[in-house]
Computed example of a mutant assay.
Amino acid sequence: MQRRSSNRDFSAYNVAQQARPVRPLARRAGELAAERSRTDGPATAVELGCGIGVEARFLAESGFTVHTVDGDASVERPMAALSVQLPIHHTSVDLAQLRELPPADLLLSCATLPFVPQPAFGALWSGMRAALRPCGILAVDLFGDRDGWAGTDGTYLSHGDVEGLLDGLEILELTEEERDGRSFSGPKHWHTFRVIARRP
């Protein structure tokens, strides 16, 4: 079955993010990753779907060396500006085409992974898990199979699917939420999973 496209405008969305606060997922994950001090240099954070760099700036200012990845060309200029000021290294690539990630003490992806087409999601997830250092923190938002966008290009998961993705990791938080609300493009039914896990 062919999945329909949702025609989301990420460039407009990213521009609109400039004034928003740091997402709670990034704050909590940063705290957990910082609890494990490194003796060989600063901890490394990898953010997939960095947008305009709100969370990347927060992590860099918190002492992490940050590697960011985003497929939207409109974020290249603001990320380049941030990279001059802070230890942030940006790569422009579609996450569905991403083949390698640097070793990470923290791997963060806020509300981005659901937009990776399902055929590419498994390989990306495997790469993410492989990049996690021992005791590394994985912090991601995922969308459920009852989300209003389910059926469009992307990856939408059941609770069992999410548990399967986390097999072998220590689950620190797995919060499922379902509600009616709004998205950047208008009214939407949300079905989401907030995940924080640690590699043993």
Rank of each mutant, 00 (worst) to 15 (best):
128 M>R: 10
132 L>R: 03
14 N>P: 08
82 L>Q: 07
190 W>Q: 03
14 N>A: 13
185 S>K: 12
136 G>P: 13
199 R>Q: 08
27 R>G: 01
59 L>A: 04
94 D>M: 08
143 F>I: 07
168 G>P: 04
117 P>S: 02
49 G>K: 09
137 I>H: 04
164 G>E: 13
92 S>I: 12
146 R>I: 04
15 V>K: 01
140 V>A: 01
179 R>V: 05
78 P>A: 03
92 S>F: 12
129 R>G: 07
122 G>Q: 05
69 V>C: 13
103 P>V: 13
92 S>P: 02
185 S>W: 10
176 E>A: 01
30 G>K: 14
160 G>R: 13
190 W>S: 04
25 L>K: 08
68 T>G: 06
132 L>Q: 06
71 G>V: 08
95 L>E: 07
71 G>R: 09
62 S>D: 02
161 D>A: 11
162 V>P: 01
65 T>W: 02
99 R>V: 13
116 V>F: 07
189 H>K: 03
8 R>N: 07
92 S>E: 02
115 F>M: 04
139 A>M: 10
59 L>R: 10
10 F>W: 15
116 V>Q: 04
188 K>E: 03
34 A>P: 07
124 L>I: 09
133 R>I: 11
54 V>K: 06
143 F>R: 06
35 E>L: 15
159 H>C: 07
200 P>I: 10
19 A>H: 00
25 L>T: 07
8 R>Y: 15
20 R>C: 04
77 R>K: 14
95 L>V: 05
27 R>T: 08
177 E>N: 00
5 S>V: 11
151 G>C: 00
27 R>N: 06
50 C>I: 11
159 H>M: 12
40 D>N: 15
57 R>I: 02
139 A>V: 12
89 H>C: 08
200 P>H: 07
63 G>E: 00
13 Y>H: 14
